[in-house]
Design a protein around this nucleic acid. Structure first.
Lengths: 193, 193
DNA sequence: ACAATATAAGAATGATCATTCTGAAAAGAG
DNA sequence: CTCTTTTCAGAATGATCATTCTTATATTGT
């Protein structure tokens, strides 16, 4: 009956996501996406919609890809301080990855787009809440196990760890030496009590 | 002999700076600047040059305005832990300022522009170094006075405080609740030792 | 008041961008 | 094989942008 698509949708989405991640929403043109995916403009529009819809699809793809990897261990039954430390060890691995001066796509979106676009803002809020919840659960367990004193509430610890992670991620997009980010995270974890 | 300018240059620079601060480099058009300053295109071009030169002038203006206010007390003779705490109290005042969801113009530049523009990158590096140096000096004094143990080097403390400040500033541009930023900073300072 | 000159206001230019449109080609149904 | 339908490739469109240019006006020394 009809011709069908020549391109692989997930592959195109992956490449578009990388472009949006690196360059942000404003600095990425639809032509950039056509070039990056090697898919026709028509194909992209019919599969992913206009630029904003495409960006939100790419962001979802990024989040799905990273959510499990980064947050999964924190959500594991009984995860506590060691899981928190392991989490930041994974964060630092990403920070150290050479050629990765792109930071975290969620943070980038929070700063660049969330102020001006409701859908982006909602997505940021949702994910921020999920991340904080994971830290809070682990902090609670850590207090229960006596790994943390409880002098600082699990809620405050969660906000703190959230800031530590997001602060590190945002610094990772800036042209700062990686060793400073490492010092920031390491010293920040050492102060937990 | 000749007509002279109708506009006040510092006033125009102030207004342009606010526009660049709020909207960033990419999202600000020269028309936005003409509107914001109420100065003719010709006047702006002849006084401030093209958009990038104008942005760098505005950034310098911002930095000059904030440098003394924010870093001065940290540089005072013998400034130590209380000066550090006072500094973050000032940071939090800015974060709490309603209507101020714009973050720190230096951080915004570090994230948006420094990756793509050498002059911006240089300026960011220079200021980052200045900020870290102020923290390091105060941390040294704090260790000397016994306010900090010295288990963590002044250099590491400085990187940590730098991250705490910049992380907070970047979160301030995101649509996150202000209380979370406050928790982040407060808990972060409580962990110093 | 007049001449000289810099300014103001905004029109013109050329680039880039998002989005839509237009043949030509491809793939499956009959 | 042929017809239909969808895709492809990229040209066309209309908007926005940075920058330059034009024209009329304002200012000041004489």
């Amino acid at each position: 009956m009809s011709r069908h698509r020549e391109f692989n949708e997930p592959e195109a989405l992956e490449k578009a996501m990388m472009t949006f991640w690196q360059q942000g929403f404003e600095d990425t043109s639809y032509d950039d996406l056509v070039r990056a995916t090697a898919v026709s403009r028509y194909g992209l529009y019919s599969a992913f919609g206009d630029k904003k819809q495409f960006f939100l699809r790419a962001l979802d793809y990024y989040l799905d890809q990273h959510r499990g990897e980064m947050l999964g261990p924190l959500h594991a039954e009984g995860a506590s301080l060691p899981a928190i430390r392991a989490h930041f060890s994974r964060v630092l691995d990403k920070v150290d990855d050479p050629g990765q001066k792109v930071g975290c796509m969620l943070c980038n979106t929070a700063i660049e787009l969330a102020q001006f676009d409701k859908a982006a803002e909602d997505k940021v809020h949702e994910m921020f809440a999920e991340i904080k919840a994971a830290f809070k659960k682990a902090a609670k367990n850590a207090i229960k196990k006596g790994e943390l004193s409880g002098d600082t509430s699990a809620n405050q610890i969660a906000d703190y760890l959230f800031g530590l992670m997001m602060g590190g991620a945002m610094l990772a997009r800036s042209p700062i030496e990686r060793s400073k980010i490492r010092n920031f995270i390491k010293t920040g974890l050492a102060g937990l009590k």
